[in-house]
Amino acid sequence: MVDYLIGAVGDIPEGMGRAFQAGRRTVAVFKSKGKFFALSNRCAHRGASLCDGELSDNGTVVRCPWHNWPYDLATGEHRLDPKEKQRSFPVRVEGDRIIISI
């Protein structure tokens, strides 16, 4: 696993996502109810950027901006079919810094 520094806690607004280039991967990092989540950014369905999706279901789901596919922020699983899964990555906060592991 390689650790990547995403930025400061304040860099991602509550309820929003941002995309980051972590090595060869593009990762969407979300802040929901004070917690951070990281999923592969490119939607497995047709390739939209999940970082532009809106959070729903009380902040537990991101919906793809193109076709509304709902992915669980914590697991990356599609809410209606867990087999349709976005890769998820561990996120931790150290001090003011957000760090993901890939």
Binding site: V2, Y4, L5, A19, F20, T26, N41, R42, S49
Partner: peptide, 10 residues
């Protein structure tokens, strides 16, 4: 050590 991930707009 860790690497800095750059913010991007894919």
């Amino acid at each position: 050590y860790f690497e800095k991930a750059a913010s991007v707009q894919p």
